[in-house]
Amino acid sequence: MVIQYLAQIVNSGLALGAVYGLMAIGFALIFNSSRLINFAQGELLLIGGLTLHSLTQALHLPPLAALAAAAIFGYLLGHALYASTLGVSINASPLRQLMLTVAASLCWQGVAIVVWGKNPVMLPQLLPLPPVRLGLVFLSQDTLTALVLALASVFFLSAFLSSTRTGRAIRAVSMNPVAARLQGIRPGQCHALSFALAGVLAAMAAMAVGPQTMLRYDMGLGLGLKGFVAATIGGYASVPRVFLGGVALGLAEAALVLLLSGELKETVTYILLIGLLVLAPGKQETAHPA
């Protein structure tokens, strides 16, 4: 019985955790490069997923084409978000920039309502992978797809950030924008690129979450918040750690439901989170992510 419990925690936790992880990385990328909490992160996922849905209805997309389409569209969406928030208010106070993302999230939600309506939309499984049974752990098709998408994204993103010139430029801007500028890096471009990458990650997350659940105009804030929580758990600093933060959140949620109840899940999650924030060292106001 206990083992069965554990196996179930792993399956349902991983599926959600992978999605939270992707959201969290996008969150952390933007936060690191521009100190901005992006409240429109969930809407990136929403619009990306809905567009992909329309595409799949119009065309018959083979898996790779769908993947490419999602990535390209997510990239464009990220740029659009940058252009409508940070890009137009680069000298504004961080709070005004933050609130611009809140307003942007409202705008995009509005677009989703006007264009796609309010009925939930089911995204077809675009990357059909067979379900896997590893001993007791049963990974369903959706879980496996989510995991594969997420791990591949983490891998490529880490490689990009650590071994390409542009990727290193993004990291340099995160550490010290002024010094980076002195080295000839354009911080504005790096900010935009981090938004675009967040958009790509959100599109991947949409592909992962779309077939499991569904896409609906009001899902953005909830998923965005989970990404925020996950990024906080992961500590914003490194891509794999932030991703693990997401997985940890997914597992913790599933475990809390099984051990306590769905009723107490949220309360306990947030109490733990506040405890973590207050007690963890190195989260002083000077804590700049590396």
Binding site: Q8, A15, Q212, T213, D218, M219, G222, L223, A254
Partner: peptide
């Protein structure tokens, strides 16, 4: 408004 209730 949740997205997955498999644990429940």
């Amino acid at each position: 408004k949740g997205t997955d209730f498999s644990a429940q």
